[in-house]
Structure formats: structure tokens, C-alpha cells
């Protein structure tokens, strides 16, 4: 069942995992007293990985739909839309990483 719903859920699941991970890194960096540069680098790297993985998933989804051709299902088509929306959400949500102070 979940296997069939994955195209719809994967994009925002990655967003949710990235959100949890980056929020944790933000708190842990402050708690462990990381230098501001190292802290920001870790956060930027995390966000970049999240975006890259999401884009990779989108590419796989598009390739899969092209390969299926006429056999494409509703869930695959809607799934591509959901992943595109999730990538946009990932970029916008984590944009403050390059601007805001992490521990103040």
C-alpha cells in the first residue's frame, strides 16, 4: 500500500526529514558551542543535500513516468507535482540559513 503511495509522499517526507535534521543541527550546534562558520557550513551543507536528494528523486520520478508511457498511473503524475512543490518548500523554508544568526 505505502509502496503505491510513495510517489505522492516522498517529496514532502524528504522535506520533513530535512526540517527535523536541520532544526536539530541548529540546536546542537549552539549547545555544543560550534564556531559560527562551522555551524553555518553544516547547515548549508545539510540544506544543499536535502535539495539535491529531492531533485534526484524528481528526476527518477520523471524518468519512470516516461518509461511507463501510456501505463503511467494517476499516482505517478500527481507525485511529480507533489515533489516539485516539496522542492520549492525546501528552498524557501531553509533560505534563512544563509541569512539569520543561528544561536542568537
Amino acid at each position: 500500500m505505502i509502496r503505491h503511495l510513495w510517489p505522492l509522499l516522498i517529496g514532502f517526507s524528504l522535506w520533513a526529514m530535512a526540517f527535523t535534521a536541520l532544526y536539530t543541527v541548529q540546536y546542537l550546534g549552539c549547545y555544543l558551542g560550534w564556531s559560527p562558520q562551522a555551524h553555518r557550513l553544516a547547515l548549508v551543507a545539510g540544506a544543499a543535500i536535502a535539495i539535491a536528494v529531492s531533485v534526484g528523486v524528481l528526476v527518477v520520478q520523471i524518468a519512470y513516468v516516461r518509461r511507463l508511457g501510456q501505463a503511467t498511473t494517476f499516482m505517478h503524475r500527481v507525485g511529480i507535482g507533489a515533489t516539485v512543490a516539496a522542492i520549492a518548500a525546501t528552498i524557501i523554508t531553509f533560505a534563512p540559513i544563509v541569512l539569520a544568526s543561528a544561536c542568537i
Binding site: F19, Q26, P96, S101, C103, I104
Partner: peptide
């Protein structure tokens, strides 16, 4: 809460 978390 720190500004960055507020930003998220």
C-alpha cells in the same frame, strides 16, 4: 528562540 529557527 534563535533567529534561524524563527526563520524556518
Amino acid at each position: 528562540i534563535p533567529h534561524l529557527a524563527l526563520g524556518f
